[in-house]
Design a protein around this nucleic acid. Structure first.
Length: 358
DNA sequence: TCTGGGGTCCTAGGACCC
DNA sequence: TCTGGGGTCCTAGGACCC
């Protein structure tokens, strides 16, 4: 018996949930994003397979998507609650599988830890359980650690299963670009390329000292290992504890006066505080994010003189930060992030340099 | 041409202390 | 007049993920 990591990823999750409750949309290009109005400032959350054939994908501005979309395309607003509910059903179906440790990674993804001689059988059982509980399809990547399991999923899509281990890592991934690795984005890809490192195999063969000099002691070593598919193998079911909450809004019309900015900050800071208060934890720090028109973003923060559970304190801190903004420039986005004190013993021991929940 | 909203973690550099 | 080394905390900024 061996330990395996399975990565379960829902296929077209958001679009699939929408089609499920509106069967008449099946087969049509479905684009979910923003408030569902393609003339607004917003981006695509998910596009159905039919929409993808027209070059529409996540992260694309709705206005661009509208230009590419055929006449019978459907634009829908994001319905947070519906996806949350579907996600909970998916996770509880998977949790019910025997001998499983489940770690939630996002709305539509999780890792399963399992000890077995037949991980493919577990993967098929996971797909069947999810399908039976929710009528949704998913793909499963099997690996000997999280990095390989996560990368494997792409080869399983849609509705399939793929195994990626030390055995076949280079055979499958060696000639792929560094960008195909989980945790390598466009910036890092470019910096690697400047050193002649383009492929996954080249990253594995690169001089670690060079990578450390370029990216620092932690990230340098991490990226080097990523080339060989190295990563953590521990699946941890401990519930995720948020470190901060934020609210941000892109305004359809830019804010032009200091008064407008202050009003918006008061509103955003109030919501951010409420999210923290709902967890019963004090706020220790407040951050502001501002996007000046046309597109320059700044972030900055301030530690509070003392942790606070008072709403007005957080709002005052956000307003004080807001007073330092450039009042001559139009604002198209504002965000307020409130960082919370960690709960007792909540100083995370082991962290993985892959961003987001893991 | 137009670029969301919610998150986490890493690094560099300055301030300050001993 | 010149000026060490180590440590910690904080801020700003960057990068990435779903």
């Amino acid at each position: 018996m061996a330990d395996w990591v399975l990565h379960v990823d829902m296929d077209q999750f958001i679009a699939a949930v929408e089609v499920l409750r509106r069967p008449e949309l099946a087969g049509r290009p479905v684009i979910v994003g923003g408030r569902g109005d393609p003339t607004e400032r917003a981006v695509v959350s998910t596009a159905s397979y039919e929409a993808r054939e027209f070059g529409i994908g996540s992260g694309m501005p709705l206005k661009i998507a509208a230009r590419k979309a055929p006449a019978d395309a459907v634009f829908l607003p994001v319905d947070h609650d519906a996806y949350e509910a579907a996600s909970a059903e998916v996770m509880s179906a998977l949790r019910a599988l025997p001998g499983i440790v489940l770690e939630v990674v996002g709305w539509d993804e999780c890792f399963l830890g399992v000890t077995t001689d037949d991980p493919e059988a577990v993967a098929r059982a996971a797909q069947a359980a999810v399908l039976e509980a929710t009528a949704l399809h998913c793909s499963v990547g099997i690996g000997d650690n999280k990095v390989r399991a996560k990368n494997a999923t792409e080869f399983g899509k849609p509705r399939g299963v793929f195994r990626l281990t030390e055995e076949n890592w280079f055979e499958v991934m060696g000639d792929k670009t560094t960008r195909d690795l989980w945790g390598v984005g466009p910036k890092v890809q470019k910096r690697l390329a400047a050193h002649g490192i383009v492929s996954v195999r080249q990253l594995a063969d690169a001089d670690e000292d060079l990578l450390v000099a370029e990216f620092g002691p932690r990230m340098g070593v991490w990226y080097h290992g990523l080339g060989s598919g190295l990563g953590p193998a521990v699946v941890d079911s401990t519930p995720w504890v948020a470190r901060s909450h934020s609210r941000e809004t892109t305004y359809q019309q830019n804010l032009t006066t200091p008064a407008e900015v202050q009003d918006a900050l008061t509103d955003l800071a109030g919501h951010a505080f409420d999210d923290c208060a709902a967890e019963g934890r004090p706020v220790v720090r407040v951050h502001l994010k501002v996007r000046y028109a046309p597109f320059e973003t700044k972030t900055f923060g301030r530690k509070l003189s003392a942790p606070t559970t008072v709403r007005e304190d957080v709002i005052a801190a956000a307003r004080a930060l807001g007073a330092t903004l450039d009042q001559q420039r139009e604002v198209r986005l504002l965000g307020v992030r409130a960082e919370m004190a960690m709960p007792d013993g909540g100083d995370q021991a082991e962290r993985t340099p892959v961003r987001g929940r893991i």
